[in-house]
Design a protein around this nucleic acid. Structure first.
Lengths: 218, 218
DNA sequence: ATGTTTAGTGAACAGATGTTGACTGAAATG
DNA sequence: CATTTCAGTCAACATCTGTTCACTAAACAT
């Protein structure tokens, strides 16, 4: 009961940090004292759980990382059943995101704006997702015509598109009736664009990388 | 010579804010006093130019906005010449971004992470770009098979893809020889995926928006 | 030449922040 | 039961912050 209570307040600290981010500020704009105030403990008790704010941020990254993995797991388990794979996948994913709003709000806010260590951790997480997605895509017969490096870029595009859609999936700053469904449809369409592009991708190498003008059209 | 000098130090304040962001912190992590210290004036002189930090941030958004417009103008003036439109456009754009690194660093950092007012201003700017791009795409004969709302989503996808590529185009945190050229190639390939998807886009309406399972395949 | 405007100065304030060290009291251990 | 462990308390600190007010002096207008 000693360590159990400790983990409990530790979680309270993490939750308080997430809750305070709903005021509109970034993670770096939240103070140690604010968090402890929210939890109801004295500022110095913070150090019983984290050496500093930075490592609390890293703990949040880990939390959102495993949460994201869970969402992916849910999507994947249904992906091979339905025919409308994209639609079903997006539906599952969006449901999961709104059910864990605060966590993904943190992710959306800090993916580029956070302190360098937290940002780096998020980038690493993103890269792992991309790598995993590449492995998944390799198993799909529809993507067999794509080269490995093209697959990597495709996966990167998909992941970044999903990440960049997080703000509109989360923000309560909408007045009309069904802005969530609209954002969800938009994400679905975007992925449809991308996968359509992948389907008709021609492995044409457009010569060297740099500035020779004569490339394949389009 | 009185107002000229004033504009000069005002610009110094803006530049100092950008310069301080290269320390890794977000805009909200920079203090008023730090900026004045960097410029070499006393803290209270700040108020001769901005009522508070927030409006300095908004001034930065305006600056990056007009800078971005200039980049787009450059891209557009060459777009109708070459055949390798994507490659040339990306080349021009990337050149412009690295030439104005600090401004676009600010944009990349604050697009989601910034204080609510600044973030909102950036979102508005993004939306104007999307609207403009829709108008542009409408003029291109290759995109005539796309419905208006599909064009909107396509433009959204393109703009967000470019925005999400900004960090890798800017960050000096690379050790190898040519990471910039690599990032540039990646952006080019992503846009190629997207435009390929647009080319083969079929205007099929997949029924209503919400949760009916029977959708078009893929 | 005289008076006004104003960018920048300088001192000082109230408040918030991170971090310190010594403490308390209850749970865990033996 | 005696002892150790340790999550949380309490008071205090040095530091940094944004903002105030009265001021100086140089550029401007008259």
């Amino acid at each position: 009961m000693r360590a159990e209570k400790k983990l409990q307040t530790r979680q309270s600290l993490l939750d308080a940090a997430l809750a305070l981010m709903e005021t509109g500020r970034g993670f770096s704009g939240i103070s140690l004292r604010e968090i402890t105030r929210e939890v109801g403990i004295v500022p110095t008790a913070f150090y019983r759980h984290f050496p500093d704010m930075e490592s609390l941020g890293l703990a949040l990254v880990e939390e959102v990382s495993s949460s994201f993995r869970e969402a992916i797991r849910l999507v994947r388990s249904n992906q091979f059943e339905h025919l409308g794979a994209i639609s079903a996948s997006v539906q599952i994913f969006v449901d999961y995101v709104v059910a864990h709003r605060q966590l993904f709000l943190f992710l959306a806010r800090e993916q580029y704006g956070g302190a360098s260590v937290v940002r780096q951790a998020i980038e690493d997480m993103q890269q792992r997702f991309i790598t995993d997605l590449v492995a998944d895509l390799k198993l799909m017969p529809k993507q067999r015509h794509l080269r490995d490096d093209d697959l990597e870029i495709l996966a990167d595009l998909i992941v970044k598109t999903v990440f960049s859609s997080l703000p509109e999936l989360i923000n309560p700053a909408e007045l009309k009736g069904a802005p969530l469904q609209l954002a969800q449809d938009r994400l679905e369409s975007k992925l449809r664009f991308i996968f359509m592009g992948a389907k008709y991708w021609r492995g044409i190498r457009w010569a060297a990388s740099s500035s020779d003008g004569a490339t394949a059209s389009e």
